[in-house]
Amino acid sequence: MGEQKNFESIYEVENLTVEYVLRNLSVKAVNDVSIKIRKGEALGIVGESGSGKTTLALSLLNLVPSPGRITSGRIIFDGEIDVLSLNGEDLRTFRWKQVAMVFQGALNSFNPVLRIGDQMLETMKEHGVTNKEEGVERASVLLKLVRLDPERTMKAFPHELSGGMKQRAMIAMSLLLNPRVLILDEPTTALDVISQKYILDVLSDLRRKLGITMILLTHDLAICAELADRIAVTYAGKIVEIAKTEDLFLRPKHPYSTGLIQATPSVLGDVKSLKPIPGSPPDMFSLPTGCAFNPRCPLAADLCRKSVPRLEEVSEDRFIACHRWREVE
């Protein structure tokens, strides 16, 4: 594929495997995953619950909780930092200054008895911004950026803010140390539809103004359609397809991506008849041999039951892990 655009990667993940060991059982929540995340892009990682997207994101911060263990692979940040070998103070700085994460349900992770402003100032103080005026100034700028009234918000206790306001305050807080990457795990799941749309608007605003790289984890394809430049689809601990957002929706190539798109209802366009993906989600404790999707796949052949397909670049900007992608209509 001679002519390849050279994108600068902010993250290079190579053959990452993360296992959770429970007594004598082990589950590979992330199974031999490789992906290059580009500087300045908004990458959507889509998958159902248990597909490993949160574990993948936690690995990017070297934050996999016990009993999880990163058993193989490398993660290189910005071409030079080996994330998995960071520890102590280096890791602590890396986590706020280079990469920040807004966790799922983060709107409840404020300290309930401290004012929002104090929590923001404390975070900055811990990371070296000791001048209070400078801190207040920085917090105000960011709160304005997420469309909150800085003065009112900084004086407020968390319970005085609505869910959508708390989530926006949390996004402002995650940006305090000017990280280059922002990871958002299901950032709108607990919110009503109008607040959700508002947050998505705020996030695309932030991208335009700050040029920050965003990694968005969600189970909802429609949310990726709103925000992401590229989408990675995960299934049973693996990335099965990576494509530009338009390409994925208009011409999905992996049978699982195709199935997901055909199973998502919409308020626009004709009411097409939707089809479920047959079978049940995979049992991570006993995955089938070969491709993990093969028991549910309409195209599964003998080869699919025997060998695990590798994620390969089949055309520019399109990676697929499927033996039979050419058959997908």
């Binding site: 539809v193 749309k197 709103e226 929706f249 798109i261 998502t264």
Partner: peptide, 15 residues
């Protein structure tokens, strides 16, 4: 307002 805020699974429309 609610309908205009519902995310739609079609990037050509939703953006």
């Amino acid at each position: 307002a609610l309908l205009s805020a519902v995310p739609v699974p079609d990037p050509t429309l939703s953006k």
